[in-house]
Nucleic acid binder design. Structure first.
Lengths: 154, 154
DNA sequence: ACATTTTACCCCACTTTTCCCCACTTTCCT
DNA sequence: AGGAAAGTGGGGAAAAGTGGGGTAAAATGT
């Protein structure tokens, strides 16, 4: 099971390639077979799942009854934007154009490791996202943790 | 299960390395595999969790449904600032630049052992933090302990 | 169907950063 | 007092990050 963490700024070269940060690379299971599934993220970013984690997720989706319209819409959107991408010899992803456009990624990417997946942001959009949050990290933490105090997080 | 306590002042060398105080070192479980996760702390400091303690925490985070926006924000902030760091042969941590900058740590660190994690402060910031508290230790203690008397703390 | 253009993918190369190892000094403990 | 452990410093090999060219495959147009 992967456990990505940390963040980093990377260059996307003229061909649309980006290296996976080495600290995240170390958390990729061999079962992922050097392959990621890049999908449209929540908020304006991309999610990159190593293949093994993606398959876990896909199993959940498959088991979801597609009997209501909302679920079907969700699955269509998710799958429409998902692409399987294999790393090259230098552990780089070739980002599909459509997804780069969606996330407004150009010459730079801000990576965040988020447990089972890696997020790719346009660095400016990430700043805007953070700035749009009025509450401080401390207050959100108190709130989130407080709501779950019986589990004793942090 | 670790149980860090005490405090100490240490030097950060030009490469960003600090020794873990030996009295805290003794409380690290072999399961931590000489590895810490350094994260952004609450208030302007860093939290260093031995890997085994971090994994305990991470399990809780993973189980959090990421279906609401606030939770996603919290997880992104937490993970963005978290880095896995392995101790070198001399039991030193190499502090990631971004985290040093966040906590304004330069040539010196003030360590505090706080149960399951170790806190790293800029010594001046810790002084300021203490000074900013108007209530005395005694009064806060009365309040905190009082609120939990039924749990019989202390 | 074929020629032409575009896209994908492998390989090689250069620069910078990271990390591993060795070494010296000071403090602690018996 | 002596030995061991703790705290601090620095050099060099290895890995990471970035860029570019060449060939093969795919897409496009006539």
């Amino acid at each position: 099971m992967s456990s990505f963490k940390g963040s980093d700024n990377y260059i996307v070269d003229a061909k649309g390639r980006v290296s996976i940060p080495s600290k995240m690379r170390r958390n990729i299971e061999p079962a992922a077979n050097q392959t990621f599934v890049v999908a449209r993220g929540l908020e304006k970013c991309l999610y990159a799942y190593p293949l093994d984690e993606w398959e876990r997720l896909e199993t959940t989706i498959r088991d979801m009854p597609q009997s209501n319209e909302k679920d079907r819409f969700f699955v269509r959107m998710l799958m429409q934007w998902s692409e399987e991408v294999k790393l090259d010899g230098q552990y780089r992803l070739l980002l599909p154009r459509a997804l780069m456009d969606f996330a407004e990624i150009e010459h730079e990417v801000f990576f965040i490791g988020v447990l089972d997946h890696i997020e790719l942001w346009n660095p400016n959009n990430f700043k805007k996202y953070i700035d749009s949050k009025r509450e401080s990290y401390e207050r959100v933490a108190e709130h989130v943790i407080g709501a779950r105090r019986q589990d004793s997080v942090l």
